[in-house]
């Protein structure tokens, strides 16, 4: 059973958000989703804002919202370093939806480059959180 799993750790500046043996991991890499199984070759990948998905040995699938970062895999240990990482079931859906609307409103107003990029990032983060929350619901 345990011979097809590897350790997944999700670490943020505030806490270790997750430390579990998992069977399968999918991360939002810069150029698309990246799937990791046991015995993966050593890799460092940049991550975008998005949803991380992992499968537990018992087949349960969980989702986490990430706000960008890095992943390193060596010796069957996957470490995800992100500024924030939130379990789908932890997401405050009302707040995430409010954040999404706020970001959309900001994008609609014409603004300078920096505020525009910021609003865009905020929107992406809100969308990731809402998606993680909805996916993690079952």
């Amino acid at each position: 059973m345990a011979d097809n799993t590897f350790l997944l750790e999700v670490v943020t500046p505030e806490r270790i958000a997750l430390s579990e043996e998992v069977q399968f991991l999918v991360v939002p890499a810069m150029e698309g989703e990246l799937g990791i199984l046991r015995s993966h070759a050593p890799i460092v990948a940049g991550l975008k804002i998005g949803v991380l998905r992992y499968t537990m040995p018992n087949g349960e699938i969980h989702y986490m919202a990430l706000s960008g970062g890095l992943m390193e895999v060596i010796d069957n240990e996957a470490k995800v370093l992100a500024e924030t990482a939130e379990h789908g079931r932890e997401v405050d859906l009302l707040r995430a939806k409010a954040a999404k609307e706020r970001a959309e409103r900001r994008l609609a107003e014409r603004q300078d480059q920096i505020s525009y990029v910021r609003a865009q990032m905020a929107l992406l983060r809100a969308i990731a959180r809402i998606r993680a929350s909805e996916l993690d619901r079952h």
């Binding site: 890499a29 810069m30 150029e31 990246l34 070759a41 050593p42 890799i43 460092v44 990948a45 940049g46 890095l70 060596i74």
Partner: peptide, 13 residues
Amino acid sequence: APDYIYEPNVDEI
């Protein structure tokens, strides 16, 4: 470990 993979590449990372 010469076979480290960088995704997408060193500079981006």
